[in-house]
Design a protein around this nucleic acid. Sequence first.
DNA 1: TTTAATTACTACTTTAAGGTAGTATTAAAG
DNA 2: CTTTAATACTACCTTAAAGTAGTAATTAAA
Lengths: 137, 137
Amino acid sequence: MQLSNTSQYAIRMLAYMADKKDSPLINATELAKVLQIPYKFLTKIMTELVKADLVISMRGREGGYSLSKKASDIKVDDILNVFHDSIQEEQCVLGIGFCNGMCKCALHDQWMEPKLLLQKMFRESSLEDIAGKGCKI
Amino acid sequence: MQLSNTSQYAIRMLAYMADKKDSPLINATELAKVLQIPYKFLTKIMTELVKADLVISMRGREGGYSLSKKASDIKVDDILNVFHDSIQEEQCVLGIGFCNGMCKCALHDQWMEPKLLLQKMFRESSLEDIAGKGCKI
DNA sequence: TTTAATTACTACTTTAAGGTAGTATTAAAG
DNA sequence: CTTTAATACTACCTTAAAGTAGTAATTAAA
């Protein structure tokens, strides 16, 4: 019952960038050091965020990363989607994940309320909302 | 954001046994067939449930498994605990899982409400509550 | 007492996530 | 133009979860 490491890292990376919105570009070395994320793994994740158009990258000396849009326009759920970690409509806690009209799992009804709150949390929380909140590691 | 396969299997296995409370013993072959769980993996999980005293086993011909207590006295959370899948107090969605007084993650506040509902769901749902609900696979 | 049917144990294989290493590419500074 | 500091790409390694195989132990029926 946890987000993947990759998604957790990604959210923390982008939240940090949102927090430092005055710096035009932030590089991987700084992110890895401050957030205590393995450098090479971080760059791999960042490349996926670039491909997903959540982040813009500049190569070469003085290069780095920046958010592709306003922090208030990037929701946590957008990040989870990149790593297929968002909660799908049919996703349940039993039945190896999926319930539908034909076949519902035994905890289907109990799951509804927490599921809706989780989806709400992910869909409504933007990077602006969470930037600067909490500690970095 | 999912329970492990192992926990999902375990819950479904025990819920099925609770449902068939008239049969004194239920064997692995029947469980594996009805619930569509790999036989060998199922017996491995069941052995852990026996060691955790949630299930009693009888070896030999005519052997099988039965719940160690009333279905209403086994909560879903008891099963999750066996596989260390229960939601811990300090467990959060960021920060690789743990928040505490010193260091809270950026989604700490938003996580509180869904977390409490999830814990409530797991702690208050007994096998009696979920037996017979939903389809088996 | 033998046989068949069951769980328990030990060890292995497979798969996917997490993480690392090295090289290529890019772009600004000197 | 060369150097330096950054991202991008490709390939690999590590770890833990998931799943499999074979054998030993146990029990009741035949």
